[in-house]
């Protein structure tokens, strides 16, 4: 059995679930988590986690300033903008 607090999980993911959806997803998540629980059978004592398949150090590049985008281009997809800014509701009192 799992102990999924679906309201807490959805809060962390910034998703809102009404009661009907919360029940549905809680059931679905429980089933999936129970299904993946077979990993517990495997002994991984002493095994290092694998983050990146090549395990080479991440390639780093020089952080050089280049002009790739104009303000206009960057703002072209903004749902709401004002002058040269993204527009959002007031966030300070």
């Amino acid at each position: 059995m799992t102990d999924i607090n679906i309201k807490k999980v959805s809060y962390l993911a910034k998703l809102k679930l009404n009661d009907e959806k919360a029940t549905k997803y809680e059931k679905s998540l429980s089933e999936i988590i129970n299904w993946v629980d077979n990993l517990k059978k495997l002994d991984t004592e002493g095994t290092k986690p694998l983050h990146n398949i090549t395990e080479k150090n991440t390639n780093l590049r020089e952080d050089t300033v280049k002009k790739n985008n104009s303000t206009e281009e960057i703002l072209s997809n903004a749902p709401e903008k004002a002058q040269n800014f993204f527009r959002v509701p007031k966030v300070v009192e």
Binding site: I33, V36, L39, L42, T44, T47, K48, P49, L50, H51
Partner: peptide, 13 residues
């Protein structure tokens, strides 16, 4: 879950 799965990923590789 997450860390465990990453370890199993190594075993799969």
């Amino acid at each position: 879950y997450y860390r465990k799965a990453q370890k199993v990923r190594r075993l799969i590789k």
